[in-house]
Simulated assay, not measured.
Amino acid sequence: MRVSVSKSQVSGTVRAPASKSYTIRGLMCAALAQGDSEVIAPLSSDDTGAARDVLRAVGVSIAREVSSKRGEWWHITGDSFREPKKDLFCGDSAATLRFMAAISSRVPGECRLTAGPSLAQRPVGPLVAALRQLGVDCSAQDGLPPLVVRGGGLRGGVTELPGNISSQFVSALLLIAPLAGREVTIRLTTVPESKPFLLMTLECLKVFGIDVAASPDLREFKVSPQVYKPARYLVEGDWSSASYFLALGALSGPVAVASLNPDSLQGDRALLGFLKDMGAQIEIDKNTVTVRKSRLNALKADLADVIDLLPTVAVLAAAASGTSELTGI
């Protein structure tokens, strides 16, 4: 196949797809809530499909609804777990595998979580060790999937793990901590990576009635026993997906991207600051961000917490006058 791309004048409006990270977090919290919840405007993708499938396999009712007025939403009846009849295949969705490793401690009987070929090569040993410290009976041969988790035994207490391996390990512990027999303290032995994802987890927990006491540096979390409450959870647009169109606006524009939360906790919202630093013309009207063609200047940017922005920022830097410096990569 041959593809030819020629110089073009680009302009218009697009709608940002829903956030995958928020969709999966909303699903997991709704599954743990007693009663009926709604996840509104979710993302339909391979990863969110994997999350739906494994939750259904352990007894969670998830019904997809669509209307011309409301668009798409998922109706979820949670806290109705039963032992699965087969392995829980998580595909290559790391969030699904890691979150379900913790949630499976609430499922009666035994859960065996399997993964696709890529995810099967990614270690889960630190998460298994942290869950064991809380009383969970779980194992993973050589620290790799599949994982076996036996329900019950989530007593609580103190658990420690490195913070610089995966924020999803920490988020998995935060999801299950409120349901332990006693207060849970999660201590990170190193500085956490991807702090924005931890803040997103805390935000989602808050919507479903869960309070977490977190230290300012996100190195320690204290969670008392609590009950998840049903909620109507609106999934905001994905800043990572929107970043390509916003950058396109600065290079060719004007381009407007709708369904974005200007105050989002998503780390990739940092692109707005990078564009402003480069001199791009930006307009924000409620949930729509417009970027116009601009003369761009070089910038210095730390991408440690927003590494997904590297390709976009690199292209912008290539089109900017001067020498840019990108660190944290």
Rank of each mutant, 00 (worst) to 15 (best):
L275Q: 07
L88F: 03
L147S: 01
V136Y: 09
A242I: 04
I284S: 08
D46R: 14
P123H: 06
R25I: 12
V191H: 06
N261T: 05
A172M: 05
E183W: 09
Q9L: 11
P123E: 12
M28K: 02
L134Y: 07
M28D: 05
D277N: 15
V3E: 15
I282E: 03
G156Q: 11
T23N: 04
S167K: 09
I165H: 08
A304F: 08
L131K: 08
A318Q: 14
P145V: 02
K20G: 01
D268Q: 05
G322K: 02
K86T: 14
R295W: 10
A304Y: 02
A214G: 01
R15A: 02
L202G: 14
S224H: 12
A130Q: 04
V227F: 02
Q34C: 07
V306D: 02
I176S: 11
L275Y: 08
E160I: 02
A180G: 01
R56A: 13
L234T: 13
L299G: 04
T96D: 13
E110V: 10
L113P: 03
M1W: 09
V60T: 13
H75P: 00
E83L: 07
D268L: 04
V257Q: 01
V223C: 06
G71C: 06
G156R: 04
C138H: 00
P126A: 14
Q141A: 11
N164Y: 08
S67L: 06
D305A: 13
E203W: 11
R122H: 08
I210L: 08
I24P: 00
R232E: 11
L174Q: 08
S104I: 08
E325A: 10
L179C: 09
D238N: 13
Q9V: 15
K85N: 13
A317R: 01
V289Y: 06
L199W: 14
I40T: 13
K206S: 12
G152R: 07
T189F: 01
P17K: 10
S294H: 07
